[in-house]
Design a protein around this nucleic acid. Sequence first.
DNA 1: TCTTAAATATGATAATTATCATATTCTTAT
DNA 2: ATAAGAATATGATAATTATCATATTTAAGA
Lengths: 143, 143
Amino acid sequence: MFTNSVKYALKAVLFLAVHSGEERKIMVKDIAEPINVPKAYIAKLLQELSKQEIISSTRGVKGGFYLTESNLKQPVLNVIYAIDGTYRMNSCLLSLESCNEYKPCPLHHIVSPMRSKLIESLKEKTLEDLSIEIQSGLSYLPL
Amino acid sequence: MFTNSVKYALKAVLFLAVHSGEERKIMVKDIAEPINVPKAYIAKLLQELSKQEIISSTRGVKGGFYLTESNLKQPVLNVIYAIDGTYRMNSCLLSLESCNEYKPCPLHHIVSPMRSKLIESLKEKTLEDLSIEIQSGLSYLPL
DNA sequence: TCTTAAATATGATAATTATCATATTCTTAT
DNA sequence: ATAAGAATATGATAATTATCATATTTAAGA
Ligand code: FES
Ligand code: FES
């Protein structure tokens, strides 16, 4: 469904959502280990997310990655789009072009409503929402 | 969501569902062109599907690929599993291990119900069902 | 201002997936 | 039997994705 990169990015961002803050910046190596993702790999992804202002960072001594209040308000979908682009989630299952209501492929009626719902949910849920669920013990992060 | 291989395989199988029969075998080249997939690529996929008895084939003069009545009764999901394996559809979105109700990842509550529904639908719908929909003009094949 | 510790930019390598090519085997009809 | 037309088996190449590595830039503190 998603690429490995998106999965890793989501894990990292959610980890930051739970553990970081403007006063609690976290370095790559302290993110990589608990979420169980290769350090160099997650570093690259974090840099990209930072460049796209999905997450925040400062360099140098005492630097690291973190989420601002504003970052926390973002929908989960932002992370996905930032890494994979929008195409993957929205393209038709059978043709490789965009999904078309007027000339639906044979799987459209099965797949499209669910995809719409999924995207809607990922747009509604913010990083903060998920962070709260994790902290309430309704879901688990490291796995 | 699915790999390119699965998409191609589905297109080919549905093409066969609509156009072939025990008395109407179709050769690779006559499948590849209308579904707009490279011949050598789809050939390999068709061979694999044939080996797994998702579709039928005979070689030699007058040979080709086709679907028997029994083939037509199969759920769409069979095609997907035959090419991609079962893992891809069933694994957790965030960890790379299997999805777990008792220790759900932060996206589980959003994603899991929809995935279950999707799998259910793909299990219920047979190739014949989709073929009929195409023939009724409810959906379109080549795209 | 200089040293140090961090992210950033850039790119190299490995693994997987997608694509292409061809010699072999089987089936039908001559 | 044998010639021809098809799938089959096998493997090679290309493109994309995943992974790793490192030199450069920036910020903080001595
Ligand atoms: S047209 Fe194929 S999924 Fe919508
Ligand atoms: S535990 Fe992650 S999707 Fe179910």
